[in-house]
Design a protein around this nucleic acid. Structure first.
Lengths: 229, 229
DNA sequence: AAAGATTTGTACGTATGTATG
DNA sequence: CCATACATACGTACAAATCTT
């Protein structure tokens, strides 16, 4: 029997005897070298055997450890299955929902008579990036089956797909505006703070507007790029 | 391959994929340390390589940034798949279109394997409000019938509706960034001018991401709303 | 303007990984 | 099997620049 085999056997016995318990560190190679009065090469060959037998694990830059028994964690690591992600459900809070006449603005924007009715729904949505206010304008004639209650479980875009027209295009517009009193209160920011205002105008295949959505989001949280000069 | 080489390669891929676009900050060393679960020494060695390749710049006391001189050619070399075509039509000009591997970022963002292919299409669109740059990411597996030539007649959203999944939700994100060299040239604005960057992540009914779209639009043309006081 | 927090820059010590004579 | 050298990796400590409060 070679020297390193002897050493491997001794260590193996000590591990199974409980001198070094599972998960605990072993003496490092330098110490083992002194203990058995052999070269590091020999120590390493001994440890090589124990690693092969999965009795010992090595951690580069750290040390030697008695290999842990197989656990769920090990299995996950071995099979490469990811740990479950933390799913954050957004908090949604509907602020306003009512039917109103289109009026002059929406008449033009949505191509309808100003006396025709639209659903107006606004709600707040908070996630890890802050609070977003969303406003949705749905013309009644295009969404005959729309129910406000369904908004509580469906997303805006899903709702829009319940309409009679298929949405095929998106006319997107952007503004940087100052928060008025209501908006600053809703988004929990200072009065006058800059706010991104996006308007999404959804169009059907003919380019006819189907619905409009507005989003308000504080611009302060956005990251600015630094100069390189 | 050593650990720090792996990390350098991953980061390099993410940069070329657009997860960290030109001029934007990277996660700081401490965060990278947590992300990759390695020591700071290893993170620094990985970054050393990227700095050497001029992909990343360091700013003492500030952080890490994607180096500004990345060209399309670099990206092509890094992802190494296709040559770009330039197709001019109407007021839309396709700047880049190629197949590439998803890489780590789109792997995560689109829930696919990093080796799977995505279409990458970017184009400029000019209208009365200025020039908009749009970037579209379409996973090949969800758009088996997609042809770049069809982009000439269809809008982005129409194209996205040609996929196998029905789009039901929109995860929208906003940043105000400064134009880097490439962007300022494309949008015909000054270097460093503020630019709206919108990312639209389209989801199917299950919340699975189907495609991603980025839009860059000068923020200077936006109309500011007057104070309400 | 001062104090503290954050982030990169630098240095050192220790442990394992690999190669060679 | 020993001795040595170097690369890789972890961890800690402190300095320097910058940002925040």
């Amino acid at each position: 029997m070679t020297l390193f085999e002897k050493i491997a056997m001794e260590l193996s016995e000590q591990i199974s005897s409980g001198k070094y318990s599972v998960g605990e560190p072993l003496p490092n190679e330098s110490d083992l070298q002194k203990i058995y009065e052999v070269s590091r090469t020999t120590v390493r060959k001994a440890i090589d055997m124990l690693v092969e037998e999965k009795l010992v694990t090595r951690k580069k830059g750290v040390g030697l450890f008695v290999a842990p028994e197989i656990s769920n964690q090990n299995i996950l690591e071995m099979t490469g299955v990811m740990k479950p992600e933390v799913i954050q459900f957004n908090k949604q809070q509907i602020k306003e929902e009512y039917l109103r006449q289109a009026g002059d603005y929406f008449q033009e924007a949505l191509g309808m008579k100003s006396s025709e009715l639209v659903y107006y729904v606004s709600y707040l949505q908070s996630d890890n990036e802050g609070i977003t206010k969303e406003v949705l304008i749905l013309p009644l004639n295009k969404y005959p089956d729309f129910k406000v209650s369904s908004l509580k479980v469906l997303s805006i875009m899903e709702n829009m797909n319940t309409g009679t027209q298929k949405i095929c295009d998106l006319d997107q517009n952007l503004q940087l505006v100052k928060a008025d009193h209501e908006l600053s209160k809703q988004l929990e920011i200072e009065h006058g703070e800059p706010v991104f205002k996006i308007s999404n105008k959804y169009l059907d295949v003919d380019g006819t507007p189907v619905s409009i959505e507005y989003r308000y989001k504080s611009a302060m949280n956005t990251k600015y790029i630094v100069d390189f000069d």
